[in-house]
């Protein structure tokens, strides 16, 4: 995150000067969605319903952008072929 700016650098009327893609909401996550590519039918339902725009279609396969995924599990629940499993986050 950028250092807090002085009032001299605040744009007119306080319009937002950065995009929220700077904010990695992935650190909220307790459960991590993991896609089993062998099961995935590329139906794109997970992409459609992801509230955090964290499911990416790269033209060939579907993958998760963990920078933003909050781990809500909607993708896993909605997946018609159960190709997504929610795995507990481990680590620090």
């Amino acid at each position: 995150m950028a250092t807090l700016r002085s009032w001299r650098e605040i744009p007119l009327g306080g319009v937002a000067f950065r995009l929220s893609t700077d904010v990695k909401t992935g650190d909220w996550r307790a459960l991590r969605p993991v896609i089993d590519q062998s099961k995935c039918t590329k139906c794109m339902i997970c992409w459609l319903y992801c509230p955090d725009m964290s499911i990416i279609w790269d033209g060939e396969k579907v993958f998760v952008n963990y920078d933003y995924c909050k781990g809500c599990g909607i993708c896993a629940h909605e997946c018609p072929v159960k190709a997504i499993t929610m795995v507990p986050e481990v680590g620090e």
């Binding site: 904010v23 509230p51 725009m53 809500c72």
Partner: peptide, 19 residues
């Protein structure tokens, strides 16, 4: 909507906006 918004995990509002 681009990601990085601070709505709760599982909130349907961003899905409404997205769709």
């Amino acid at each position: 909507l681009i990601p990085g918004h601070r709505l709760c995990a599982g909130c349907a509002a961003p899905i409404v906006v997205k769709l």
